[in-house]
Amino acid sequence: MNKPLILVVEDDTPVRNLITTTLKAHKYRFLTAANGELAILEASSHNPEIILLDLGLPDMDGVEVIHKVRSWSNMPIIVISARSEDTDKIDALDAGADDYLTKPFSVEELLARLRVTQRRLSALQIGSMNTDAVFTNGKLKVDYAAGCAFLDNQELHLTPSEYKLLCLLCKNVGKVLTHTFITRQIWGRSWENDVASLRVFMATLRKKLEKEPGSPQYIQTHIGIGYRMMRVES
């Protein structure tokens, strides 16, 4: 697979070095920016394919950078945040970020996130060609037109809510969706009770979808943040 160009936005030199060293070791091409202004400049001039964005920047809020970038581009953005910026993370996801990494993160984790995003990228490129009626992901197949889903060519018996949930996840495959985003999309509001219902629907949906609930293959849970449909290689 062709290695994408990655823009690393991080003000802390050791962490930036860690990321760039890792990228270099895995033959990724990369650019760096130490603050928000440079980040926007680099993003607009070099058009990178993925942005790794630290939320705590010296000159501006990371969420602002996301808003600016999203105004012209749909490029995947992975935010990096310290644990104390938990709510910032959700804000960033709601603002349009695709994924997140929490400091301290391991190198493996970083690489895994990059792989996920890459798959999403290639899916996007294919997807732009066929925004079609059938979605396939590994053994999962969703026929939007017919309004039914199949796993291993067996039809899944889903309740209306479960089906809606599945469609939403599939349409945003590879992207972390926050609880608020999901509940707004499905019920048009985000009350406390809806978030609770979401948990249950997600659990029942997952039970029907996953062979091994202990190590989920399709739907990933991000405690306190949201859910994500993983891109599965067929």
Binding site: H179, V195, R199, G214, I223
Partner: peptide, 14 residues
């Protein structure tokens, strides 16, 4: 405390 409703299975898995 940021209280929210969570599924025990998910919490343990996390």
């Amino acid at each position: 405390l940021h209280i929210s409703t969570e599924l025990i299975d998910e919490v343990v898995a996390e």
